[in-house]
Amino acid sequence: MTAPSLAAPSGTTPRLPAPTPRPGRHVLADAGAMVARSLRLVRREPDELVLGLVLPVMLMILFVYVFGGAMSVGTDYVTYATPGIVLLCAGYGASNTAIAVEQDMSGGIMDRFRSMPIVASTVLVGHLVASVVKNLVTTAVVLVVALLVGFRPVATPLEWVAAVGVVAAYVVAITSVAAFVGVLVRSPAAAGGFGFFMLFLPYVSSAFVPPVTMPAWLRGFAEHQPVTSVIETIRGLLVGLGSDARPVTDLGTTAVLALAWCAGLTVVFLGGAAWAFARRRR
């Protein structure tokens, strides 16, 4: 190797600037760099890409062709279940952020970020934005597959926009919980455990069967857990039906409840993640 010279960079950098003394000033620039990083890492994670494409197709086949024939929910099962599959896939995809965050927390790169004059917790912002982008793509895949197997939404363009917005809010909320989990846990397996949880949570909601068919003790949970209000909002917007397969009547209330859940989870858990981030390894 030739003697390296760091002192004489090529013409354009006559003198290297000293690092910035005030980190907070550049918080937006830091977040931008972190978002670019996370988006690139997501794109290069083959498992995630395959999962984002294969999971929707498998679930759609499972629910429409395997369970669908035996289900009696008062309408076409694909119409009933598609919003649930959207949330199942998006929620599971979002939960995998826990693994990405755990990897960052336990890897050497976090030491570098923390020792730089930047707002290191913007690394979580990067994961959050990447998760939203990734899971909206997954949502698009689910909807395309659903349309192919007979899903017939009746939404106006405005209702479509609202539905996508609610899915995004849900993804932000679940990703926030995932980020909190990722900062707290100390092993990839523990981080993956949250994905397992998110894979099952929608089953105990109005996603796939009306809660009225469940035993009373479970129905209480199913009717009031956050996934249900989000499902009902999306189902109401896309196909105009409620969990009982009758035309939806109180969509406004449901939507407010869904958004309140999402906002509440986001504030509590993103705040918790930032708090835990600042304290870990100190």
């Binding site: 000293a18 690092p19 910035t20 003394p21 005030r22 980190p23 907070g24 030491d111 570098r112 020792s115 730089m116 004059p117």
Partner: peptide
């Protein structure tokens, strides 16, 4: 924060 502006790890 000031120290981080002066070092590299």
């Amino acid at each position: 924060a000031r120290v981080r502006g002066l070092i590299s790890l």
